[in-house]
Amino acid sequence: MNTMDSTPQTIPATDGYPLGATFWAAAGTPQGVVVMHPATGVPQRIYQAFAQFLAARGFHAITYDYRGIGASRPKTLRGFAARMRDWMLLDAEGVTRWARAEYPDLPQLAVGHSVGGHGIGMCGAGWGLAGAVLVACHTGNSRFIRQRGERWRVELILRGVGPALARLMGYVPGKRMGLGEDLPGGVAIEWGAWAGMQRYFFDDPTLGAVERFNRVTNPVLVYGFDDDPWATPPAINALTQHFTNTWVERRQIARAEAGGAVGHMGFFRPKFVDTLWPGLADWLAAQAAAVRVPDAAEAA
């Protein structure tokens, strides 16, 4: 696969903030448009190979960076005002609206990785999707982590070191800490606050997450992996149980079935192009076909 059919884009969030994005054109007649919502602090380049794969399977694909990350990062994160809710309610919303406005006659679909799946549930523009896939998506409560050492480490980062550094430095130096990209301070502070709530952000009265998830009516496919230390089945259940007005299909994948270690971040690695990716693409194609209306030429 190559990048010849990819085009850089600047897509406005709903408040006008410019988001760095990439459009991947479908090979042949497009069967739908897939917006890929990234994980926390994960730049869109991590999803490049998967976007190319979807394009080869006949989907337009859109990758993007949340504000403060990758191509959407300002010159400095010190003093940069951004919260985690902004990624869901402003950024995911803006990209979804852009895709629908650009391709109104094509089925709209979404793939969310980790917090990207939260955005799918929260994003009002996504409530009319043909289908959505959640990969390694869960609530950020450390009590669901089985390994005691990992549970303590995550708790320390989310509720201790992360918020403290955010208040001290104005951002979290994730790259130097081995945590991926640097994070805006407000993102880390809000993330830590939610992590301390019994039901994560569903207990935040300023967010309305329960009501938002209830408004999702499109089919939802959820992937979990047996070797993911964070998105354990109980942690996934704590999130997906709030999709109360739609059909949710669960796929829990063992390492042997995947053909290698997946963990929390591995699904989008090219080594799974022949094992994990086709099943997801087939599901998207089925949802797109279920809602697609033939044009005049096809009908004739």
Results as ranks from 00 to 15, higher is better:
299 A>M: 15
163 P>Y: 00
224 G>M: 06
162 G>Y: 01
181 E>G: 11
217 T>A: 12
235 A>R: 02
159 R>F: 04
80 F>N: 03
132 A>C: 11
104 P>S: 09
62 I>F: 14
230 W>M: 15
132 A>L: 06
88 M>Y: 14
203 D>I: 07
48 Q>P: 01
182 D>G: 10
8 P>W: 08
298 E>S: 10
73 R>S: 07
297 A>F: 12
151 R>M: 09
9 Q>T: 03
242 H>Q: 10
8 P>L: 05
148 R>P: 06
282 D>S: 07
47 Y>G: 02
186 G>A: 12
167 R>F: 10
108 Q>E: 12
32 G>P: 02
255 R>I: 13
31 Q>W: 03
238 A>N: 05
117 G>E: 00
173 P>A: 06
251 R>N: 06
52 Q>D: 10
120 I>T: 07
78 R>K: 13
42 V>N: 03
235 A>I: 06
148 R>D: 14
83 R>V: 08
34 V>L: 08
71 A>N: 13
83 R>N: 02
244 T>C: 10
64 Y>W: 11
22 T>D: 03
264 H>M: 14
43 P>R: 11
181 E>W: 06
67 R>M: 09
95 V>S: 09
104 P>Q: 03
203 D>Q: 08
166 A>E: 01
133 V>A: 00
134 L>I: 05
53 F>M: 13
11 I>K: 08
172 V>Q: 01
67 R>Y: 10
98 W>D: 01
217 T>E: 09
20 G>C: 03
287 Q>L: 03
115 V>L: 11
87 W>S: 05
272 F>I: 10
63 T>V: 14
215 R>T: 02
271 K>P: 08
134 L>D: 00
186 G>K: 01
192 G>V: 05
203 D>N: 14
11 I>G: 07
35 V>C: 03
229 P>H: 00
32 G>H: 00
25 A>S: 15
24 W>A: 00
87 W>T: 05
7 T>I: 11
192 G>H: 00
202 F>D: 01
147 Q>I: 12
176 R>I: 10
157 I>C: 10
103 Y>H: 15
110 A>F: 04
38 P>K: 03
287 Q>V: 07
210 V>T: 13
203 D>C: 10
294 P>I: 08
79 G>Y: 03
119 G>H: 10
69 I>D: 04
205 P>L: 04
117 G>A: 11
233 P>S: 13
213 F>I: 06
166 A>W: 02
218 N>S: 15
262 V>E: 04
144 F>Y: 14
10 T>Q: 14
136 A>F: 07
258 A>Y: 00
264 H>G: 08
279 G>Y: 06
107 P>E: 08
38 P>Q: 06
11 I>C: 11
168 L>K: 12
232 T>A: 12
57 R>S: 12
253 I>Y: 04
168 L>M: 15
257 E>H: 05
53 F>G: 09
289 A>G: 07
188 A>F: 02
7 T>Q: 13
73 R>H: 06
175 K>E: 15
95 V>G: 05
140 G>R: 03
262 V>G: 01
46 I>P: 01
67 R>E: 05
228 D>F: 01
249 E>N: 06
166 A>Q: 01
179 L>Q: 15
91 D>N: 07
258 A>R: 00
261 A>Y: 09
47 Y>I: 04
258 A>I: 04
167 R>N: 14
219 P>E: 08
166 A>Y: 00
231 A>L: 07
108 Q>T: 14
43 P>W: 09
127 W>S: 12
261 A>M: 11
